[in-house]
Nucleic acid binder design. Structure first.
Length: 877
RNA sequence: GCGGACGUGGCGGAACAGGUAGACGCAAGGGACUUAAAAUCCCUCGACCUUCAAGUCGUGCGGGUUCGAUUCCCGCCGUCCGCACCA
């Protein structure tokens, strides 16, 4: 018997078991159908899944189930991005080993994901902290090294002198270590880098080929790579001061045209010249140390107050030997960009202007905006960076900016300083090489041994993996690998003499830069990637994840794939053909009288015509409803997916996460929204039952003429929903799919209301039966358990998860008559119902015959009538 | 600071490619059913004006292009994301 209410507690585990037993989602390598690889960014095993995961994986699952129904051989795997700092923090706080903590979290989260009913091929699961994964990553590192894609060089890190550890930028708060509170220092360390800059041009150019990526992500990456064409100019230093042997200062500029507007030179606090001068200048040393306390993040550097230190040195203007410019050390000049030195032109660069105004250096406008009077054009607080003609610039006067750039480049290339040209044209990138060394335990060990005699020696591949030691302690400050009693002491693989292991581990972004390739054959114990298999599955057809990864993870993966290609592992450059970045899950915040945050579970919310009010469940006291913010532990505005799945079922949670908000935007989690989704689950169960009953009712013999309209209307509603849902899944507009399903349900409910159940003609019965199947198949990708229960109830013998997507009959949705909106002077005045193929003259005549049009014209003669076929009529009076 | 996005009823949002603004859902108000409640079903629901019919205004703000602008352009305001050792 068909129960009145759908029981998700029974149905969800039941159908999950059926799919498992039938291997419904296990991808068969031998399957010859066209492949489709859908992948969601794999989770960090932080402890429990959160609503963001539910949203992300619900979206991917809709695509996977839909594509499977469309006849593709779908690959939809899952794994764990399992190395990272939180495991070490947990180790310090709760004395749990990072591995134990991580694998326990994975067990919990795997069970949670399984309760969502995702159509994943779990047989491919791995964690990046498995030695069987990082072994291959170490091999890849060695291959990249052999191919010249790895470099070793100095770079600066945030150093916490108390905790004896390197700090991430997010761990530097107001210049102090987050745990110790000690002022942060900077240290120069020798570190390993992937030379991503070698691919800068290709990574930039190939962005144009990524047609199924969001435009904004491509733009962000292009700006991140930051290609610029400019000039490297060598300035002579004026005095032969005892303080330095340096004779010149090299700057990189994209605005050589403004050279006659120069007022000062500025070098980074990290510039070698600044370091040299500081050795004999205590005040400068203090200034530099002060700059360093802000940490290494670009945001901190650029947002701070612009400050400088006058070195007393002067640089000579390249076009005038008698013109010298003071040389400052300035905190806003980045060592990583260009040469770490600039010439300042205050009139045409806001940062330079702020600096010049602060130190009374003045400015000379050299670009006059179109229409401005060159005699009167002055700059005070706002720099001008727009187009114009050169002024106050001697031989450049009157030229455009581009002409002036060319002229300066030409002259300086021809001019010599010492024995070399004074300038050269240079293409510069903002992109820097990817530093992968981390002074931490819980990461993939870098397979290198340092030998006094042989230098940095690669660990031979047959000795991989270099395993992390298990017996480590987090009681002491510093890197556990470094102070482990025995781990790092090994024989040099080259000479056999005493040597030490590299104790740095890899950035966890390395782990996630090739996992998508490993998923194609995770069973290969010999090699990281099985080339023909990877070539067949890659690129990922649809990749889905958070916008916060728009730059780093995606750029690193693009680089890594090029590296894999150049080391012979696969034959493609771009790993992700389609990318979708989804928004966050946000929730209201609640604060009690004491100002303490309350969790949604601790609050009752009441609503009536007067608005919404909240009360504490504990004592009934008033609670302030605060801003809607990203779910976070600190605001206590989280909702646990487990609780939701327990109380409402996975289908309800999935449906709600896909409803309402466009997937790329944030979605607000509300109790009312979940309730609405839960109501829809029961409503669908009822409607499918009613459709089934109507379809199998004893027949009536109403004439075709009377019933044809009703049957056709039902079929039209079903097929037009079928077309629209298909199109919207293809474009990942799940919120619209949900709306279409509601619309179809509404029209089917109406049609069911109108029938005389004692006498339903055969044609209408068939239409109801067809509509029932279509409706179930439409929501099956989103609410798969409910769909299976309905599908079985409709008498199908095998799961809807294995059924083919129904074919749509487009002829049903074309109408003979259409309704055209009619405007007069752009304002809508009427609707015109007219035959679909009426010609222009007929439409014009019918339009002018309308009462409302005549009224709006008020006796005036129409000047023009615009008819946009199938769309609109506009009468211009 | 730099880079990127977003802004539509009480709320989330829809509107194909410049062509009916508000689909669909939520909340709210009214009603039916019920001893009662839950569940379910029906009606109303941008603002103003109005007996009705109709009308006026309305997509963050100010301009512009167009027969017609939520959509395109310019300038503001506000919110969010990224900034290289969080993942």
């Amino acid at each position: 018997m068909r129960p009145e209410r759908y029981n998700f507690r029974e149905a969800e585990p039941k159908w999950q078991q059926v799919w498992r037993a039938r291997h419904t989602f296990k991808t068969q390598e031998s399957d010859a159908r066209q492949k489709y690889y859908v992948l969601e960014m794999f989770p960090y095993p932080s402890g429990r899944i959160h609503m963001g995961h539910v949203r992300n994986y619900a979206m991917g699952d809709v695509v996977a189930r839909y594509k499977r129904a469309r006849g593709f051989n779908v690959l939809h795997p899952m794994g764990w991005d399992a190395f990272g700092m939180p495991a070490e923090n947990a180790a310090m706080q709760s004395k749990t080993h990072p591995a134990k903590w991580t694998y326990a979290n994975i067990d919990t989260m795997r069970a949670q994901l399984k309760s969502m009913g995702l159509s994943l091929d779990w047989s491919r699961e791995f964690a990046t902290c498995d030695p069987s994964y990082y072994k291959h990553q170490q091999a890849l590192f060695l291959d990249f090294l052999g191919r010249g894609l790895v470099a070793r060089k100095q770079s600066r890190v945030n150093w916490d002198p108390v905790d004896q550890t390197v700090l991430a930028n997010e761990q530097v708060i107001d210049g102090r270590g987050w745990r110790s509170g000690a002022p942060v220092e900077q240290r120069e360390l020798t570190q390993w880098f992937f030379t991503i800059t070698k691919y800068a041009d290709d990574l930039l150019a190939a962005l144009d080929t990524l047609e199924r990526w969001p435009e904004k992500v491509r733009l962000m990456q292009a700006n991140w790579i930051g290609r610029s064409e400019g000039l490297l100019v060598r300035f002579a230093l004026a005095e032969q001061s005892k303080r330095t042997d340096a004779r010149e200062l090299d700057v990189y500029t994209t605005r050589p045209d403004t050279l006659f507007g120069a007022k000062f030179m500025a070098i980074s606090p990290e510039h070698p010249l600044a370091r040299e001068l500081a050795q004999h200048d205590g005040a400068l040393a203090e200034f530099i140390a002060d700059c360093e306390r802000r940490g290494t993040s670009e945001a901190a550097i650029e947002m701070g107050e612009k400050r400088g230190y006058d070195t007393g040195l002067h640089a000579v203007h390249p076009f005038d030997a008698n013109w010298t410019l003071p040389v400052y050390v300035a905190n806003f000049v980045l060592m990583e960009y260009g040469t770490g030195a600039i010439f300042g032109c205050p009139a045409h660069d806001q940062r330079d202007l702020d600096f010049a105004n602060k130190y009374g250096l003045g400015n000379i406008p050299v670009v006059c905006p179109p229409g401005a009077d060159p005699e009167k054009f002055v700059i005070t607080d706002t720099a001008y960076d727009g187009p114009g003609r050169m002024i106050n610039s001697r031989f450049l006067d009157g030229m455009t900016i581009d002409e002036a750039k060319q002229e300066v480049a030409r002259r300086l290339e021809a001019q010599t300083l010492g024995n070399a040209p004074q300038a050269e044209r240079k293409i510069n990138y903002r992109l820097r090489d990817w530093g992968i060394s981390r002074q931490r335990y819980w990461g993939c060990p870098i397979p290198i041994v340092h030998c006094d005699k042989c230098g940095a020696v690669p660990v031979p591949k047959d000795q991989l993996p270099v395993r992390l030691p298990d017996d480590v302690s987090f009681d002491r400050p510093g890197n556990p690998l470094d102070h482990h009693a025995t781990w790092k002491h090994v024989a040099c693989p080259a000479c056999g003499g005493p040597a030490t292991r590299e104790t740095d581990t890899m950035d966890t972004f390395v782990d996630s830069s090739w996992y998508f390739a490993r998923f194609t054959d995770p069973w290969n114990a010999e090699a990281p990637i099985t080339k023909p298999v990877a070539n067949r599955w890659l690129p990922v057809d649809q990749y889905i994840g958070g916008i916060e990864h728009a730059i780093l993870h995606l750029l690193y993966s693009r680089f890594f794939t090029r590296g894999l290609r150049d080391t012979g592992y696969l034959d493609l450059a771009e790993p992700f053909a389609g990318l979708f970045t989804q928004g966050m899950v946000v929730h209201e915040t609640y604060r009690g009288a004491s100002g303490a945050w309350l969790s949604p579970a601790e609050v009752d919310v009441e609503a009536d015509a007067g608005g919404r009010r909240a009360f504490a469940k504990a004592d009934g006291s008033a609670v302030e409803i605060g801003a809607i913010e990203k779910m976070s532990k600190s605001r206590r505005n989280t909702v646990d997916p487990d609780d939701i799945i327990q109380s409402f079922g996975a289908d309800t949670a999935r449906w709600f996460m896909l409803s309402d908000s466009p997937p790329e935007r944030d979605v607000i989690w509300t109790e009312e929204g979940v309730q609405g989704a839960a109501r829809m689950v029961q409503r669908l169960w009822r409607v499918v039952g009613e459709l089934k009953n109507a379809a199998s009712a004893s027949g009536g013999n109403g004439a075709d003429g009377e019933t044809g309209g009703a049957a056709r209307a039902v079929r039209k509603a079903a097929h037009s929903a079928l077309i629209k849902v298909g199109e919207d899944i293809e474009r990942l507009r799940f919120n619209r799919c949900v709306a279409h399903i509601y619309e179809l349900t509404n029209s089917l409910t109406e049609a069911l209301d109108e029938i005389d159940s004692a006498a339903i003609p055969a044609e209408l019965r068939a239409a109801f039966r067809e509509a029932a199947d279509i409706l179930v198949q439409l929501f099956a990708p989103m609410m798969p358990h409910l769909a299976e229960e309905c599908w079985a109830d409709l008498g199908h013998g095998s799961p809807v998860a294995e059924a083919a997507w129904p074919a749509a009959d487009r002829s049903l949705v074309i109408e003979d008559m259409l309704s055209l909106p009619v405007q007069v002077n752009g304002k809508k005045r009427a609707d015109l119902v007219i035959e679909r193929n009426a010609d222009q003259a007929a439409i014009e005549a019918a339009t002018l015959a309308l009462d409302s049009v005549q009224r709006a014209l008020a006796g005036k003669a129409p000047k023009k009538i615009i008819v946009v076929p199938q769309r609109i009529v506009n009468v211009v009076a």
